[in-house]
Amino acid sequence: MELKDQGAIVTGGGGGIGRATVLRLAREGAVIAIADLSAENARTVAEEVRAGGGKAIALPVDVTRSSDVARMVEETTKSLGRIDILVNVAGGSLQKAVAEMSEEEWDFIVDVNLKGTFLCSKAVLPTMMGRRSGAIVNISSIYGFTGNATRAHYSAAKAGVVGFTKALAQEMAPYHVRVNAVAPGRIATPRVRGLYTDEEWKKRIDPIPMKRAGEPDEIAEAVFFLASPASIYITGQTLHVNGGSLLY
């Protein structure tokens, strides 16, 4: 149990990669605030943690609203006592060509993926800086590196997450707060898998050197590594978990 009694917030913890991350951190003894836009999904995952003997609270949070984020940090501190780890998983994408994209659609995707990461990170800095310790792990995406037609807003936001991660890492180094990112490739979350027919899915798996999609658990392992003492002096880095994509 490498994270015994450490307090962690996982945004987007109600499903997919967020849920896998919650369960992985809980397995190491972390006590967890599961923040999700869907109160119901957050509650379901919190119950899973409790069923496994862990401690978790569920918080309905819109990460793009600073008042929600402030309440998230308050309630976490009250219930769990401390915040050692923040994992910014909340995010999402919609397919739309730039030529057809409204300003509102741009704002929505950039806000949930990038501004949310900024707001949540900022909100936990005072406690982490004060204790001169802490780890923040942000979820970027392979699309932040490759771009993706019909996902310009998402690609830009996820590239932004990498820049934000590096800059914040430099600001936080004197306080020994570490900030890193994980960039998933194609991950078979129920939501993503549901977007494609079997044939479409196969077409997307073929170019991956490992010839398979990743599992949410495999992202959770990378997050756990970057949140744990195993990566004690690593900061500002992005770990690609993509089965060897991006190589040629």
Partner: peptide, 23 residues
């Protein structure tokens, strides 16, 4: 800790990474 991550199942979907521990 980093080496163990890369040579164990923890990194089962990670390959071809050049991972710098410092910038």
């Amino acid at each position: 800790g980093t080496a163990l991550f890369f040579v164990t199942e923890a990194s089962s979907y990670v390959t071809g990474q050049i991972f710098y521990m410092k910038d």
